[in-house]
Nucleic acid binder design. Structure first.
Ligand code: ZN
Ligand code: ZN
Ligand code: ZN
Ligand code: ZN
Lengths: 156, 156
DNA sequence: CTTGACCCTAAAGCAGCTTCAGGGTGTTTA
DNA sequence: TAAACACCCTGAAGCTGCTTTAGGGTCAAG
């Protein structure tokens, strides 16, 4: 099948699939000699489904590579896999903890302004200007899983 | 004061401060005509402290710009500020919710392998290969606050 | 007068894509 | 038969918020 159909089947865009090939996550497809189009078979599809599931679980390409390796070594011990998943769970839990601290701080900050008034008298700005507690220290350390930063608003 | 001292006072690196100037978060500093070094005064310091607090709270530069604007318009209503903070709290809460779903899924996945054996028989790989439930759907939608993805391990 | 600490700029790198620019292929339809 | 349209290709740049690198000037102390 051609890349467009593959994309539809697995739920990636064609660009993403080409990107994965370039990154080495997906084996290069055979090319149709007539037009140089990529041709995919069932093994590509299975591999992409696997990758998609891993990405859905927020693994890095590096982590996924390890799992893909293990997948083609059926006689090896699965200890590596277990460790990887365990570590990854820690990554996610660490990020959750960071974000929960953030949430608390933000809600407290929000509480500094109840009624609408001029910015001059806004408790929020005041708080941001003169951090009261030493919450100046980064609640968000750079743990392995990002997600502390707030990205540009693409929600309409 | 020079950039190095300012950096020490506010806890940014000099590179970050120069970067903020280039991005328009921080007003360009006056330059010492003799050597072209940047010279900072107290207002720069205050502004940087404000920015630092906002970054600690995981706001984007865009969000911070809005707050900085409000800060220099003392007679405007602080409604904008309240809305911004409220929205930002939602960003964080949404990301926490996503990560908690992730956590649940990962722990369930981990439960597929109890004893160590060969990868051929590993329940984890099996599960990743053939997603049982339709958890194939992205638990991690791209909400405004990132943090679903797991970045390359820089923890030693 | 050299060492070391500090300052400068411009460009590239990070993760994981997405978007763009510029062009070929292939089927359908007016 | 030609235009329209959907699909394919490549390579490079853009996104976020910095950090790192390369390559160089400035200045105080020893
Ligand atoms: Zn991880
Ligand atoms: Zn207010
Ligand atoms: Zn936000
Ligand atoms: Zn196992």
């Amino acid at each position: 099948m051609k890349i467009g159909e593959l994309a539809k089947q697995v739920g990636f865009t064609v660009e993403t699939i080409r990107y994965y090939e370039k990154e080495g996550l997906l084996h290069p497809a055979l090319r149709d000699p007539a037009n140089n189009y990529r041709r995919y078979d069932h093994s590509h599809l299975e591999r992409l489904i696997f990758i998609r599931r891993c990405r859905t679980l927020a693994m890095t390409h590096e982590e996924i590579q390890v799992l893909l390796q293990a997948r083609v070594q059926p006689n090896a011990s699965c200890e590596t896999i277990n460790e990887l998943i365990d570590e990854h769970i820690h990554h996610v839990q660490a990020r959750i903890a960071e974000l929960q601290i953030l949430e608390t701080q933000l809600i407290e900050l929000r509480g500094q302004c109840r009624a609408a008034h001029t910015t001059r008298d806004c408790g929020i700005l005041r708080e941001l200007d003169h951090p009261t507690e030493e919450l100046t220290e980064p609640a968000v350390v750079h743990s392995h899983v990002p997600g502390s930063q707030c990205r540009g608003g693409q929600h309409k």
